[in-house]
Design a protein around this nucleic acid. Structure first.
Length: 486
DNA sequence: AGACATGATTGGTA
DNA sequence: TACCAATCATGTCT
């Protein structure tokens, strides 16, 4: 309903009221808004049969006041303010006010009818729920931890403080902060605007009847408008969270190759424990640490351990499926392992000799230069020589007690008791390496360095007893232990 | 672009 | 619960 129609209606009612009151005027029939065309050709009702000159002045008054109201919007603010004050003081104002009250009474029903409670917007509810679930909305505590935990659980590990998750949380916190800042801004703006409108309405209530319900309704409208803005904010926040999620958590399936170093460490362990390549939980943890898989995959030990488990699971399967393919790799690592061990032992022996001046010089001398081999083949050769060569100290099929062999090499004067404990451990290490090597090399002197010794006829891994004190030959004591060790 | 390698996931099993 | 086997999905190589 346009304002003009309303004014016309108002004029009508005003006239009627005044008519009823009869004291003010006999009739306002025939009043036309001088100088103002009523929209839609709507004219005031015809005269009520009174055409007395007494009413002319009042008609003029009403025409005047209505004209002023109608044109007030065309004026400048100052002029309008001045005019408003004038209207407030106008002698017809009370009458106008009562007419407005009446109109209000009549239209009140329709207003109330239009004021049905909005059902909660399902989309908004969805957004709210999501923001809550993602830790953006709701209590600050552990923002996003729920989502992070969920993601961690989904990725097969328990919730932990991995780098990725902390990174995720950091970013989520940023989003959360932005969200709350914006939300606060919106709320503040909403409150300010509401206050402003309420002030206006209060002020207007001096000239027209405004019920508290109407104010309430107006506030409701404002809030709805602002909540639609809020919804946009929530929507974009949700989008940001989804992007973040996909980048950090849902991308868990994205494969990133381990570093070469890590793969090497894992392979070394695998091939040196080929008879039973099932690292214990501790071994996995240590491998994970050693591998620095953590550098790219996160610090959390749980996830990394599961990665190690994955790796060994994959490795076992793939190895078993295609042993031939892994032959070369196995040779390589076997050689490497042996060479490293020999290195360690040589160093230990030299160390012991240095520490024991009485120890006679033995024929068992290993010089570093001898181990500067640059190809697997030469390593193979070296190994073959080592184990089958003329020294005869290493009788492989039953490599026997390395320590004893060394004793015999060094002659009677070489007393085991004289050898330092470190030498003993190194010797042990070497002994195990040799037995390990022997474990997956049935014929070291033959053409093949390596055969799939650990596999049984069923395709499963033999429950071979891993040598006692399985220590990674490259690391020495304190290194990764197999679960079956000891 | 396609083949292959490889880390991750899934469903079943002991 | 750890493991196997199959599979997925992505990285890397040619």
């Amino acid at each position: 309903m346009s304002f003009s129609i309303c004014v016309a209606q108002c004029t009508d009612s005003l006239a009627a009221t005044m008519d009823d009151q009869a004291r003010i005027m006999q009739s306002i029939g025939g009043v036309s808004l001088a100088g103002h065309s009523v929209q839609g050709g709507m004219a005031l009702p015809p005269p009520h049969g009174h055409d007395g000159t007494d009413g002319d002045g009042r008609k003029q008054d009403i025409g005047d006041i209505l004209h002023q109201i109608m044109t007030i919007t065309d004026q400048s603010l100052d002029e309008a303010q001045a005019k408003k004050h004038g209207l407030n003081c106008h002698r017809m104002k009370p009458a106008l006010f009562s007419v407005l009250c009446e109109i209000k009474e009549k239209t009140g029903l329709s207003i109330r009818g239009a004021q049905e409670e909005d059902p909660p917007d399902p989309q908004l509810m969805r957004l709210d729920n999501m923001l809550l679930a993602e830790g953006v909305a709701g209590p600050e505590k552990g923002g996003g931890s729920a989502a992070a935990a969920a993601a961690a659980a989904a990725s097969g590990g328990a919730a932990d403080n991995s780098i990725e998750h902390s990174d995720y949380r950091a970013k989520l916190t940023q989003i959360r902060q932005i969200y709350h800042t914006e939300l606060e801004k919106y709320e503040q703006a909403c409150n300010e605007f509401t206050t402003h409108v309420m002030n206006l309405l209060r002020e207007q209530s001096r000239t027209r009847p405004i019920s508290p319900k109407e104010i309430e309704r107006m506030v409701g409208i404002i809030h709805r408008k602002f909540s639609s803005i809020q919804m946009q904010l929530k929507q974009s926040t949700c989008e940001a969270v989804m992007i973040l999620r996909s980048r950090f958590l849902d991308a868990r399936r994205k494969r990133r190759n381990f570093s070469k170093q890590a793969t090497e460490i894992l392979n070394e362990y695998f091939y040196s424990h080929l008879s039973n390549p099932y690292p214990s939980e501790e071994a996995k943890e240590e491998l994970a640490k050693k591998c620095s898989i953590t550098v790219s995959q996160g610090v959390g030990s749980t996830i990394t351990v599961s990665q190690v488990s994955n790796w060994f699971g994959n490795k076992r399967i793939r190895y078993k499926k295609n042993i031939g393919k892994f032959q070369e790799e196995a040779n390589l690592y076997a050689a490497k392992t042996a060479v490293n061990a020999a290195h360690a032992a040589a160093a230990a022996v030299q160390n012991s000799q240095a520490n024991s001046p009485t120890t006679p010089n033995s024929g068992f001398q290993m010089k570093d230069e001898e181990f500067q081999l640059d190809s697997a083949e030469s390593k193979n050769t070296l190994l073959s020589n080592m184990f089958t060569g003329s020294s005869g100290s290493f009788n492989l099929p039953n490599s026997g007690d390395m320590f004893l062999s060394m004793q015999s090499l060094n002659g009677d004067s070489y007393q085991g008791a004289q050898v330092g404990a470190n030498v003993q451990s190194q010797v042990d290490t070497l002994r195990h390496v040799i037995s390990q090597t022997a474990g997956y090399n049935d014929a070291l002197g033959g053409n093949t360095m390596y055969s799939p010794h650990g596999l049984n006829a069923n395709g499963g891994w033999q429950d071979a007893t891993t040598p006692s004190s399985v220590i990674s030959p490259t690391e020495g004591p304190g290194s990764v232990h197999s679960d079956t060790s000891n």
